[in-house]
Design a protein around this nucleic acid. Structure first.
Length: 859
RNA sequence: GCCGAGGUGGCGGAAUUGGUAGACGCGCUAGCUUCAGGUGCUAGUGACCGCAAGGUCGUGGAGGUUCAAGUCCUCUCCUCGGCACCA
C-alpha cells in the first residue's frame, strides 16, 4: 500500500474495474428484492454544476447503501433534452438546437462518469430521441380517442414586434426581452389534457404517500384547491342573459353588493361597443403578462359597465363592474362581490365607493371592525328570513332556496386547471395531429408515428422551422386522403419528464412499456429539487395514472418515497466601478481571510487588492459565483467532492459552497488513508476475543457499535448524510487516538477500520473499494454487506445524569445506569455544588427522567 | 398578492420523542514538527464576570404555556422556493 493518498490513480483504477464487470447494469430478477432509485433527469445545459453533483451524490449514496443491503438496485440516467435554452443558444451561436444539445450531453455524460456514480448507462436515452418521443405521441393519440384531450382558445404572451409567443420568463416588466415591445395577451387555439378529471384522485392520493415530504403534499393540495361551494345565477337586468358565478360562501349572498367580470367577458365586450372609455380599459387590461404573480401584484382596477344584475333573493339591482383581477380562463369569468366578507372585494369597494353590507358576525358576539372585512364563519345578520343561522346552515338554506328557483346549485370546484400542452416552439416533440378542412383535427395514425422533428435546420429564433417549412407541414388527411396540414406546435417539455421514469425500465421495448415496468415500478426513491414540488411532480403523478388506465402500469403512484434537495448557493464577490458598473469575481479568483476580530476580508488573487463580499445567492452565471465540479474532481478527486456535498448540509437544506470545507473533506480522507497505512504497518491482529478486552479496548468497541447504529439509522431512515459522516469522523478521530499495538488492540482496531470503510463506501466508493482488500476484507466490499451492531458491545458501565435546580444545570454525575429516583437524589445530595443550592430551602417537586436528568424544584 | 420552507458561535451545521445548546467540519489562537510550506501533529476556541471553584446571559424579534422551550402556542421581521410557457 502506498504511504499517501492519490485519488487520481485509484479512482481511474476502481472505475475501470466497475466498467469491466458492468457492475451497475441492472437485470430483472424476480427472486431478488428490487430497489429503483431515481434522480430527476438533468437538462443538458452545457456543463455539470454543483446542484447536479449534489442531486446525484444523494441518489448514489442511497443506491449504494441499498446494494449493500442486498437489493437489486436500478439507478438510471438520461437527458431532458427538449427546451427553450437550446433555442436561445441556437440564436446566440448559430448552431442547430439538436447539435448544441447532443454536444452538451456528451460533455455532461463524461463528467458524470468521472464522479463514479453507480449508474446503469445501458438504459440511457435523451428525450429528443425519436425512439423516445414516438411513444409520447402514441399516448397522446390514444388519449385523444379516450376523450382526455381537447382543443380550446387560451391566452399567450404575444410580442407584437417579433411576432412571436413569449415564455413568462421572457417577459420582463411587461415587455419582450429582445424587442422591448409591450407584450399583449392573445388568444390562440391550444391542446389540453384533462388533468381535472383526475383532480380528486390526485388530491386524495396524497394521503397514501406517507414518505413524501409534508410540504410537497400541502403545496399540491393547495394547488389542486378543491372547494365546496355553489354555482349561482344572476339575471342581467333588461336582458335575457345571465351571469354565472361560483362562490365558496353562499352564506354571504345577501351581502353581495356588486358583480365583477373579466375584461374579456362577453358582457364587458358588449359594453365596450358603444363606450370608448370601457374599450380603452379592456385594451389596457390586455397588456398585463399572463403570469399569476403579475396579475396579483398589479393595481386592482375596475370600471362600471352601467349594466345591473338582479340579486336572486332580494330582486335588488346591483352594478356590474369590469375588474382586471377577474380571470376569464378561471371559473366562469365572473364573481359576486361581498366586500364585507372578502379582503379583495373590500379593498375594491373602498376604492370605488361601492356599498358594503355586513351579513355575518362572529359567533362569539364580538363586534365587527368598521374598516375591515370579517372573513370567518359566524352567524347571519341583515339577511331577512335567513337571519340567526350559522354560516353552514345559511349556506345550505340559501343554496336550497336558489335551487328551488332554478338559480343555483351546490358544486365542487377546483383551483387546478387543465394542462395546456401546446407550445409555439420548434425544439420540442411535434404534436401528432393533422388538420383537415373536412375531417377536422385528426390524430396521426399509429403506423405513421413518429412524427419526426427535422433536426438539420436553420433556426432564426422568430419563426419555428416547422411553421416556415411547407414540405414538412403539408400532408394528407389520414381519414379522407385530402390535402391537410400538420400541427406545428410542439409539446410542453413537462410531457417528456412525466414518463421517462417508466421508460428506463424497458429499454428497447417494442411498445411504450412492457412487462419489465411491472418489476421495477413504482420508484422506491425519487430525488430532485424542491422547485419541482408542484408542477413536475403533479404531472408525473397524473401521467402515471394515465399509463395505469391504459393498462401499462399496475400501481396508483409513480414513486413511494420522495426527497427534495435544497439549492446550492455561494457567496458573491464584487467591485463597483466609477462608471456605475459592477464586476463579479468567481470564488476561485478570490482569497477570503478572517482577521483577529472575526471580520472577513476578501482579496482578488490577481492584484492582491480588496474586493467586497456580497450576498449568498444561488449559483449563477450573472453573479459569477458558480464552481465547476470538474476542476474540483481534477484537484481532489471525485470522493472528496462527493464527501463535501453530502457533509456540508442535510439534503433538504440549501448548501453553501465553501472552498475550505472541501479542504476539510480532503484532509479527512487523507487521515483515513494514513491511519489505515499505519495500522497495517503496526502488525498482524489476532482473532478478536471480546471476552478478553481491557477497558480502553471495550471503550473503542462501544464507540464503534454506537457509530454503526447511528450511521445505519441516518442512512436508511433519516437521510441525514451529514450527521452520518460526522459520526464516522468521530470514530476516525477515536481510532487515530487509540494507540495500542497489542494483538488484542490491533484486533479491535481492525474490526473498526473494516466497519468504517464499509459505512463510508456509499459516500466515497473509490477509496473504500481500494482499501477493503488492503485491510483483509474478503471478496467485494459491496457483497460483504453492511456491518452489524453488537448490542453487547454498547452496554455502558456508567452514564452521565444532569442535576438541575429550578431548571438550571448544577451538576453532572457519572452514575450506574438504571438508578431509581431515590438513589439518583441521594447521589445528587452528595455532590458539593448541588449542596450549595439545597441548604435553607425545601424541595417542592422532583422530576426524574431515568438515566438522563433530575430536576429539583426548590423554594 | 397567494401557497410552502427557513432564521442557532466568526462560518457551514448538530441537538432524532419538550429534558446537558453548539456534535462534526471550517476559521482563528498558541505550541511542536519540517530545508521549506497554501504540509502534518497537539491544545484552546459562544459572549460576559471570576485567580479558581463557579456564575450570568445566549438559538431573528415580542409575548405566552411548562418543573423544563432551539423544539409547543400567538403575533411580528427578514431570506429563499413555487405561482400554470425556465427546467
Amino acid at each position: 500500500m502506498q504511504a499517501s493518498y492519490n485519488p487520481k490513480l485509484i479512482e481511474a483504477e476502481v472505475q475501470q474495474g466497475w466498467n469491466e464487470q458492468q457492475k451497475f447494469q441492472a437485470k430483472e430478477d424476480p427472486a431478488r428484492e428490487k430497489y429503483y432509485c431515481l434522480s430527476m433527469l438533468p437538462y443538458p445545459s452545457g456543463t455539470l454544476h454543483i446542484g447536479h453533483v449534489r442531486n446525484y451524490s444523494i441518489g448514489d449514496v442511497i443506491s449504494r447503501f441499498q446494494r449493500m443491503q442486498g437489493k437489486n438496485v436500478l439507478q438510471p440516467m438520461g437527458w431532458d433534452a427538449f427546451g427553450l435554452p437550446a433555442e436561445n443558444a441556437a440564436i446566440k451561436h448559430a448552431v442547430p438546437p439538436a447539435q448544441w444539445t447532443r454536444e452538451n450531453i456528451k460533455q455532461m455524460r463524461e463528467q458524470l462518469q468521472q464522479l463514479g456514480f453507480a449508474l446503469d448507462w445501458s438504459r440511457e436515452f435523451a428525450t429528443c430521441d425519436p425512439d423516445y418521443y414516438r411513444w409520447e405521441q402514441l399516448m397522446f393519440t390514444r388519449l385523444m380517442k379516450k376523450g382526455l384531450v381537447y382543443n380550446k382558445q387560451a391566452e399567450v404572451n404575444w410580442d407584437p414586434v417579433d411576432q412571436t409567443v413569449l415564455a413568462n420568463e421572457q417577459v420582463i416588466d411587461g415587455r419582450g426581452w429582445r424587442s422591448g415591445a409591450l407584450v399583449e395577451r392573445r388568444e390562440i387555439p391550444q391542446w389540453f389534457l384533462k388533468i381535472t378529471d383526475y383532480a380528486d384522485e390526485l388530491l386524495d392520493g396524497l394521503d397514501h404517500l406517507p414518505d413524501w415530504p409534508e410540504a410537497v403534499k400541502t403545496m399540491q393540495r393547495n394547488w389542486i384547491g378543491r372547494s365546496h361551494g355553489a354555482e349561482l345565477r344572476f339575471q342581467v337586468a333588461d336582458s335575457d342573459t345571465c351571469l354565472e358565478v361560483y362562490t365558496t360562501r353562499p352564506d354571504t349572498l345577501m351581502g353581495a353588493t356588486y358583480m365583477a367580470v373579466a375584461a374579456q367577458h362577453p358582457l364587458a365586450l358588449e359594453a365596450a361597443r358603444d363606450n370608448p372609455e370601457i374599450a380603452a380599459f379592456i385594451e389596457q387590461c390586455r397588456h398585463t403578462g399572463t403570469a399569476q404573480a403579475d396579475l396579483d401584484k398589479a393595481e386592482k382596477l375596475g370600471l362600471d359597465t352601467g349594466s345591473k344584475a338582479v340579486h336572486p333573493l332580494t330582486g335588488e339591482l346591483i352594478p356590474i363592474w369590469i375588474a382586471n383581477f377577474v380571470l376569464m380562463a378561471y371559473g366562469t369569468g365572473a364573481v359576486m362581490s361581498v366586500p364585507a366578507h372578502d379582503e379583495r372585494d373590500h379593498a375594491f369597494a373602498s376604492k370605488y365607493k361601492l356599498p358594503i353590507k355586513p351579513v355575518v358576525q362572529p359567533a362569539d358576539g364580538s363586534e365587527l371592525m368598521a374598516d375591515e372585512p370579517f372573513i370567518g364563519s359566524g352567524v347571519t345578520i341583515n339577511s331577512g328570513e335567513f337571519d340567526g343561522l350559522s354560516s353552514a346552515e345559511a349556506a345550505a338554506a340559501i343554496v336550497a332556496r336558489l335551487a328551488q328557483q332554478g338559480d343555483g346549485r351546490a358544486t365542487t370546484q377546483y383551483r387546478l386547471r387543465d394542462w395546456g400542452v401546446s407550445r409555439q416552439r420548434y425544439w420540442g416533440c411535434p404534436i401528432p395531429v393533422i388538420y383537415c378542412a373536412t375531417c377536422g383535427a385528426v390524430p396521426v395514425p399509429e403506423e405513421q408515428l413518429p412524427v419526426v422533428l427535422p433536426e438539420d435546420v436553420e433556426f432564426s429564433g422568430v419563426v419555428s422551422p416547422l411553421k416556415s417549412d411547407p414540405s414538412w407541414r403539408q400532408t394528407q388527411c389520414p381519414q379522407c386522403g385530402g390535402a391537410a396540414e400538420r400541427e406545428t406546435d410542439t409539446f410542453d417539455t413537462f410531457m417528456e419528464s412525466s414518463w421517462y421514469y417508466a421508460r428506463y425500465c424497458c429499454p428497447g421495448a417494442a411498445d411504450m412499456l412492457d412487462e419489465r415496468a411491472d418489476y421495477w415500478l413504482p420508484v422506491n426513491q425519487y430525488i430532485g429539487g424542491i422547485e419541482h414540488a408542484i408542477m413536475h411532480l403533479l404531472y408525473f403523478r397524473f401521467y402515471h395514472k394515465l399509463l395505469r388506465d391504459c393498462g401499462m402500469v399496475h400501481s396508483d403512484e409513480p414513486a413511494t418515497r420522495l426527497l427534495c434537495q435544497g439549492m446550492v448557493v455561494a457567496e458573491t464577490y464584487f467591485r463597483k466601478h466609477d462608471d456605475g458598473s459592477t464586476s463579479w469575481y468567481s470564488p476561485t479568483e478570490v482569497d477570503v481571510h478572517t482577521d483577529g476580530d472575526g471580520k472577513r476580508q476578501a482579496r482578488l488573487l490577481e492584484d492582491d487588492q480588496p474586493v467586497l463580499i456580497g450576498a449568498i445567492e444561488k449559483m449563477s452565471k450573472s453573479r459569477n459565483n458558480g464552481v465547476n465540479p470538474q476542476d474540483l474532481v481534477e484537484r481532489y478527486g471525485a470522493d472528496t467532492v462527493r464527501l463535501f456535498v453530502l457533509f456540508a448540509a442535510p439534503p433538504e437544506q440549501s448548501l453553501e459552497w465553501s472552498d475550505s470545507g472541501v479542504e476539510g473533506a480532503w484532509r479527512f480522507l487523507r487521515r483515513i488513508w494514513s491511519g489505515i497505512h499505519q495500522h497495517l504497518q503496526a502488525g498482524t491482529p489476532t482473532q478478536l476475543d471480546v471476552a478478553a478486552l481491557n477497558a480502553e479496548q471495550r471503550e473503542l468497541r462501544r464507540k464503534l457499535h454506537d457509530t454503526i447504529a447511528k450511521v445505519s439509522d441516518d442512512m436508511q431512515r433519516r437521510y441525514t448524510f451529514n450527521t452520518a459522516i460526522a459520526a464516522l469522523m468521530e470514530l476516525s478521530n477515536h481510532l487515530q487516538r487509540f494507540d495500542d499495538d497489542s494483538a488484542a488492540g490491533l484486533a479491535v482496531t481492525r474490526e473498526a477500520w473494516l466497519a468504517l470503510i464499509q459505512m463510508l463506501h456509499p459516500v466515497t466508493p473509490h477509496l473504500c473499494t481500494h482499501l477493503w482488500p488492503q485491510l483483509g476484507g474478503t471478496g467485494d466490499i459491496e457483497q460483504a454487506g453492511w456491518p452489524q451492531v453488537d448490542a453487547a458491545a454498547r452496554v455502558r458501565e456508567a452514564i452521565i445524569v444532569v442535576i438541575q435546580i429550578n431548571g438550571k444545570v448544577r451538576g453532572k454525575l457519572e452514575l450506574a445506569p438504571g438508578l431509581d429516583q431515590a438513589a439518583t437524589l441521594a447521589a445528587a445530595r452528595a455532590d458539593q455544588n448541588v449542596q450549595r443550592y439545597l441548604s435553607d430551602v425545601t424541595i417542592r417537586k422532583i422530576i426524574h427522567v431515568p438515566d438522563k436528568l433530575l430536576n429539583l424544584v426548590v423554594g
